[in-house]
Design a binder for these strands. Structure first.
Length: 109
DNA sequence: AACGTGACGATTA
DNA sequence: CTAATCGCCACGT
């Protein structure tokens, strides 16, 4: 049983190129369905040190959830570079790009 | 052990 | 569609 934080990192590492997941999905797959905010916290502080594809993580509205302008732009560019369409308001088509893994794909715990 | 903190989410107006 | 409110909870301090 890995700690929540480690599971989150494992899940994020498995997001395929050209796809996205939401914070809530990741929280659920990591065993804490309501800890979406904690996922955000983890990314905010740990993404650089773990070489995570953090740019493939967006919020439930399908939007880039970054406050910082430069980082926001970076995420948008990274997504577009993988073929994910991002509109002018930073929104992605979840129906089209979201990974819809249930909770049985993973072999962690 | 208690407390503040969020790249959130669902609901309501 | 936007905006405000409230619930949520693992983790560092």
């Amino acid at each position: 049983m890995l700690p929540f934080t480690e599971k989150v990192i494992q899940v994020i590492k498995k997001i395929p190129e050209g796809k996205v997941m939401t914070y809530g999905q990741i929280a659920k797959l990591s065993g804490h369905p309501k800890a979406a905010r904690q996922v955000a916290r983890i990314l905010h502080s740990m993404s650089k040190k773990h070489h995570l594809p953090w740019h493939r993580v967006i919020n439930a509205k399908g939007q880039i959830a970054i406050q910082d302008e430069a980082t926001y732009y970076e995420q948008m560019m990274s997504l577009q570079a993988e073929g994910v369409e991002v509109d002018a308001s930073g929104r992605v088509d979840l129906e089209k790009y979201r990974v819809n893994w249930q909770s049985d794909y993973i072999d962690l715990d």
